[in-house]
């Protein structure tokens, strides 16, 4: 079985709030000093799911990332976990795309690989938190999909997937080839063994641009995007704790709940 893992490198979600800044002019996050981008955590879990399947059924795992040269680090991380090959989709034309252009580019790369049986993605990228690239890849490829998996196993004909629901989980079965997005309920990604880290360091990552994938530069990246980002901003937060007033505990409790409702937390 040949499984493709889509891995994204993102600004560190654990960036301290005080270091998280946005450039209002470009609507982009300003990389925080001394804080390196990381592999999106859900993608690491997707890699874990793919590797377990490979260990159970044999085959190979290819990791694909769309991003800048620095995304090599994310690819190497998945290679160190045990993936066999890495592909970096890197082209200025890919920049500033949306979920659709990302999925389209990834789908073309998967087609180019040719013999892919399954695509595993994280349930969402931990930066934009959209959670649609996996499904869009499935649509681009015309494959079935199962999202937010907490367990994946191979059957004779396809994959049996446990999906997380709001109040439990369900088991679905999909024929191959298929797309699966994996959730954190699946479990932690493995810690790479040093020999594999070394081997990964020596591996060459294939780099493909728009031309290699036969994509018109005008149809990908910012040019092809269907979602237009108008504004990216940090919601105003009062720095200090707001102590809830009230003469009685009941009053305090009710005032707190009003605040939480206003914040759409409950």
């Amino acid at each position: 079985m040949h499984i493709v893992v889509c891995a994204k490198q993102i600004p560190d979600p654990e960036t301290p709030p005080s270091a998280f800044k946005i450039d209002a002019a470009t609507n982009k996050v300003i990389p925080a000093a001394g804080i390196s981008p990381v592999l999106s955590q859900f993608d690491g879990i997707a890699a874990e799911a793919a590797l377990r399947l490979k260990e159970a059924k044999g085959g190979k795992v290819t990791v694909i990332s769309l991003g800048a040269e620095s995304a090599q680090a994310a690819i190497k991380q998945v290679l160190a976990m045990g993936a066999d090959e890495g592909v970096l989709l890197k082209d200025a034309a890919f920049d500033d795309g949306d979920s659709y252009t990302t999925a389209r580019t990834l789908a073309e790369a998967i087609k180019k690989l040719g013999d892919v049986d399954a695509v595993f993605c994280g349930r969402q990228a931990a930066d934009w938190d959209m959670g649609q690239v996996g499904l869009l890849i499935a649509e681009e490829l015309g494959w079935p999909a199962a999202i937010i998996a907490k367990g994946v196993e191979a059957t004779d004909t396809g994959l049996k997937i446990q999906r997380v629901l709001a109040d439990g989980f369900e088991t679905v079965e999909a024929p191959l080839p298929a797309v699966v997005t994996v959730s954190n309920e699946f479990g932690e990604p493995r810690y790479p063994k040093l020999p594999q880290i070394m081997a990964a360091a020596k591996k060459t990552v294939t780099a493909w641009g728009a031309g290699d994938l036969g994509l018109d530069p005008g149809s990908v990246g910012k040019a092809g995007a269907r979602l237009q980002l108008q504004k990216l901003f940090i919601p105003e937060k009062s720095g200090r704790v707001e102590l809830i007033e009230g003469d009685t505990p009941q009053e305090q409790a009710s005032n707190l709940i009003k605040k939480l409702q206003a914040d759409k937390l409950i």
Binding site: P11, P13, V29, D127, W128, D129, L229, L232, I234
Partner: peptide, 11 residues
């Protein structure tokens, strides 16, 4: 987005 650190407005 960004784990709740930011809000994004789209059209």
């Amino acid at each position: 987005c960004y784990g709740g650190n930011a809000l994004a407005t789209y059209t």
